[in-house]
């Protein structure tokens, strides 16, 4: 199993947000995580990637057979875990190309590979830019600085394409995107999708799932997965909203 989360409890500032979450993702699977706001969707992404301030009080996150609860974020990334941020961070003064090259070569070094040569890097850069339809030069642009909302999200998918992770978590990547940008995101995910790679797609709406067909849909409520199903569940949620889940669970 690629990702195996067992009885995960996560607290922020002593407040418990995840309260016994279980989730298993096999290679080749696309999982959608849905649910009302404030139920722990983004906390799950933060816990898997090792963000500071998210304390695992109980349970385990196992990735490729290793428990990663206490692993540094960069090491998790080097093992192939990628997060497309809900709010990509602007980093003035650090150019996109410099940033992405440092990241690519850090990961290669971790795997014991030689750094990409400048020409190989540029070639790859061009390929992946085309994939996500980024037409602008990246040389003089600082990471995410002055990017529109849609550009920022496309840039996340571009980075994913460059880094070729085994497990990609997309945290609300669809929020605020128009239909064209949504298609670009979907295209990027579908291009990376393979029998070796798994996806966890966190979304509030069903819309993205018209373009990325999930194998499984899970509903998080109150810090746990309370319902799982196939792609039909997403359509049902779209139609009926979340209230019936809440009612079912609260009773």
């Amino acid at each position: 199993m690629l990702l195996n989360i067992k009885d995960l409890h996560v607290s922020i500032d002593g407040k418990e947000i995840l309260r016994g979450l279980n989730l298993g993702v096999n290679e080749g699977e696309i999982h959608a995580i849905m649910g009302p706001n404030g139920t722990g969707k983004s906390t799950l992404a933060a816990a898997i990637t090792g963000r500071d301030g998210y304390e695992i009080t109980k349970g385990t996150i196992e990735y490729k057979g290793k428990i990663i609860n206490d692993m540094e974020p960069d090491e998790r990334a080097n093992l192939g875990i990628f997060l497309s941020f809900q709010y990509p961070v602007e980093i003035p003064g650090v150019s996109m190309t410099n940033f992405i090259r440092t990241a690519v070569n850090s990961q290669r070094e971790y795997r014991g590979e030689e750094p990409l040569t400048a020409s190989a890097f540029l070639k790859k850069l061009d390929e992946k830019k085309k994939l996500v339809e980024i037409h602008s030069k990246l040389t003089n642009r600082s990471v995410n600085e002055g990017f529109s909302g849609g550009e920022k999200k496309k840039n996340e998918i571009f980075q994913m394409a460059m880094l070729e992770p085994n497990l990609a978590i997309l945290d609300e990547t669809d929020s605020g995107l128009d239909i064209d940008a949504l298609k670009v995101v979907a295209k990027g995910v579908n291009a990376l999708s393979s029998p070796e790679n798994g996806f966890v797609i966190i979304t509030h709406y069903q819309r993205l799932l018209d373009y990325i067909i999930p194998d499984f849909v899970h509903v998080i409520y109150d810090g746990r997965i309370v319902k799982s199903g196939g792609k039909g569940l997403a359509l049902e949620l779209e139609e009926r909203g979340y209230d019936w889940i809440k009612e079912q669970f609260d009773n």
Binding site: D74, F99, V143
Partner: peptide
């Protein structure tokens, strides 16, 4: 900026 630090580390940068 700790947000920027996490963002970079999430990409594999030490």
């Amino acid at each position: 900026d700790t947000e920027a630090l996490f963002y970079m580390k999430q990409r594999g940068i030490s």
